Amino acid sequence: MNEDHYIQPIQQSDQGLANSFTGRLIDYINPTPAMISLQDISTGLTNICRFGGQIKDFYSVAEHTMLVWHLCPDHLKQAALLHDAAEAYLGDVIKPLKMLIQDCYGPIEEKFEKVIFQKFGVDLNLLTEVKHYDIQALEIENNYFRFGNLDFISKFYDINEELYFGKTIKEKFYMLLRSEFSHREIGG
């Protein structure tokens, strides 16, 4: 890691700069593909709880992403893995709040989505098709966390245990990202 590019977020956070988990300097005003890494995406999304944390058990954005990936047909799998990747850098803003701050948050989110999809060679327009599966996953998750309906989500976890037996969610998600995108990762 180049020490010239490593800053403490407190020193220049008022300039839109912060560090990622891997020590990359993230410029929130002008993000670039070089700032993005699979490990940062994996770490960020596995550490962020869905539903604004307002659920009984921790359920990460990474787990949600894996559910969307599972639901999607093959031609959308890569886009599904990246559909919330910007949240690794921006956090998971719950829908009601996101709607209230859309005018300022939306353009920043769009910049990060564009840079992430560009870096990993995935067509950003596929997000429109992934949205259906994202909503389907939200409904499954809501039924599970709010009403205790275990129908699909328990099957999903059984499938994931078979695929990645003995791994943590962070390890599972990082393995999945690397299996799809490691050929596009430089220095990450």
Rank of each mutant, 00 (worst) to 15 (best):
V93N: 05
K56N: 05
I101L: 05
D27G: 04
M66L: 15
M175S: 15
F145C: 07
F58W: 08
E63I: 03
I140F: 07
S60T: 00
K114Y: 03
L90V: 00
Y133K: 02
I55P: 03
L45D: 05
R184C: 09
D40T: 08
M175G: 06
T168W: 00
Y174Q: 08
T168D: 03
E185C: 01
D123G: 09
L45K: 02
V115M: 08
A88C: 02
G148T: 03
Y59K: 01
K170W: 10
Y89D: 13
I26F: 04
E63L: 08
N30Y: 01
R184H: 09
G148M: 06
R178P: 01
R184L: 11
H70F: 06
L150V: 04
A88E: 00
D40S: 14
L124N: 12
N19P: 11
I108S: 05
Y105E: 04
F120A: 02
K131P: 10
D158E: 14
M1P: 03
N142Q: 14
F58I: 07
Y174V: 09
G16Y: 00
D4L: 14
E3V: 09
F181H: 06
Q15P: 01
D74C: 11
A85K: 09
I55Q: 04
N19K: 14
K155P: 00
L124P: 07
Q15T: 11
I48N: 05
T128G: 13
Q136P: 07
K131N: 12
E113M: 09
I135V: 12
G148Y: 10
L126N: 12
A79G: 05
R50D: 13
L71S: 08
M99H: 09
E110D: 09
C49I: 01
V61W: 02
P31N: 05
I94K: 10
T43S: 14
H64I: 07
L71I: 06
R24E: 09
K167S: 09
P107E: 06
T32S: 15
T43F: 15
K155H: 12
K95P: 13
G16D: 04
D103R: 08
R146S: 08
S42K: 02
F152R: 15
G52W: 01
L17H: 00
T32W: 09
H183I: 09
Q8T: 02
D4N: 13
E180R: 08
Q12V: 00
K111F: 00
H70A: 10
I140Y: 13
L138R: 11
I29C: 10
F58V: 04
N125Q: 12
M175C: 04
D103E: 14
G106S: 14
K170T: 07
E129W: 11
E87K: 15
G44Q: 05
A137V: 01
Q12P: 00
C72P: 08
I94T: 15
M35W: 10
C49W: 06
V130S: 04
L138P: 01
L150W: 11
K131A: 13
D103I: 02
Y144L: 14
H183W: 04
M1L: 07
